[in-house]
Design a protein around this nucleic acid. Sequence first.
DNA 1: CGCGGCTTTGATGTTCATCAAGTAAAGTGG
DNA 2: CCACTTTACTTGATGAACATCAAAGCCGCG
Lengths: 231, 231
Amino acid sequence: MSEVIQTADCLDCPYRSLIFENLNAEQLIRVTENRKEILYKKGEVVCKQGDRVQSFLYLKTGLVKIFKENNDNKPQIISIAKPKDFIGLLSIFSQEVYPFSISCIEDSAICFVDLDVIRSLIREDGEFGLVFLEKMSEVSENIWQSRLELSKKNLRGRIAYTLLEFSQNIFDDLQFDLPISRKELAELIDMTTENVIRILSEFRKDEIIGISGKTITILDNNRLEQINLHG
Amino acid sequence: MSEVIQTADCLDCPYRSLIFENLNAEQLIRVTENRKEILYKKGEVVCKQGDRVQSFLYLKTGLVKIFKENNDNKPQIISIAKPKDFIGLLSIFSQEVYPFSISCIEDSAICFVDLDVIRSLIREDGEFGLVFLEKMSEVSENIWQSRLELSKKNLRGRIAYTLLEFSQNIFDDLQFDLPISRKELAELIDMTTENVIRILSEFRKDEIIGISGKTITILDNNRLEQINLHG
DNA sequence: CGCGGCTTTGATGTTCATCAAGTAAAGTGG
DNA sequence: CCACTTTACTTGATGAACATCAAAGCCGCG
């Protein structure tokens, strides 16, 4: 199960985000004293839609999915977050409760910083506030970019786009282990599980990718790019 | 054509946003001196995708559409913004240039506040920064909510959703003039113009709505809600 | 008044979801 | 550790939802 660990203070944290770069010693101590780090196993839930927002969430290592749970039993995955992402997104500043759930698709380490501490840092240190805003803006912009891009593509295009995302932005390799199931991939790009599988098989038959269980190898990057663009 | 007007200072602005509520006199003067207000006619362009971001944009009155221009000649409307919305969205803090265009779908008055002034206000006045962040968060959250809601519905559901949005959130009336063309409605909810028209006609035949040119009258709100929910 | 863009309807075809059925894999309890 | 259950994966067949194409009327505007 998940485990709270006591790390050295944030000053020495190798995963310290740029936003905490310019804090002074006193401020960093305040952050250190009002945070906890939790190690999660793959599959564990970080927060559930409807939970009270109390912390600023920072993904140190691992991979998580941020998703809406609808009462129709068809979750919608909003985004897969990478290390150094702010996984509470912007919501934490206007919502009482989380409008989405977060769970781990790989073992992950997540820092929970007391939200009141973040608020007080912004209040007293405008420079911090500004940097914070910029970083928030960037994360948000990336997710928007992706969603809008996806929504104008057909199924083949969406699959191609997502495989390229994984390859280029997350694993930085032409071969990688799909961190999510076919079902989750379907939830991420808004299609059915059957069609995800069908199209992956198609790509395999066309020798655009290789598939071995969860392991995907991109064999013909060009063609994948073409499908991405014209799908 | 569009017209720059010299209004009284922001202190007296009846449309002053809550975010400027707690500024002191000196700060408000700085805002006043580094802003301009422009009156646009329906159809005029406020900013184009790719323009350099230099101002914080605030919609005082009117209605604008925020949209992506793709090279395939199929614009995607991201959102219709109402008075008091921050129409540059979060992008202004991480993007050099606008990732979208904005144009007016009704005559509109828009304030351009020099972005450097906003930045300096955040730097020097943390409370302002925090309120600003909260408001940004709220606007962003609403758009997300809408897009995710839409993306899980079928065409009838999307039309129903949008009509209810207009009725309830924008015009606060069961009868209203559609501020956008059928074509734009299609771009907003990601379908073809033909199908927008077809489904509106269907709703008319079923006596769920009345249509007379741009004027829509919701005759059976209940049924529309049902279609929205189950579509 | 004539041109271009918007609107409307119908006919047609494609894309995609759904249903069904079976295999493989992965967790669960005795 | 094995039987059992559940969940993931896979393929095919079918039909529904939706896009595309075509044609014609309409409306606003120079």
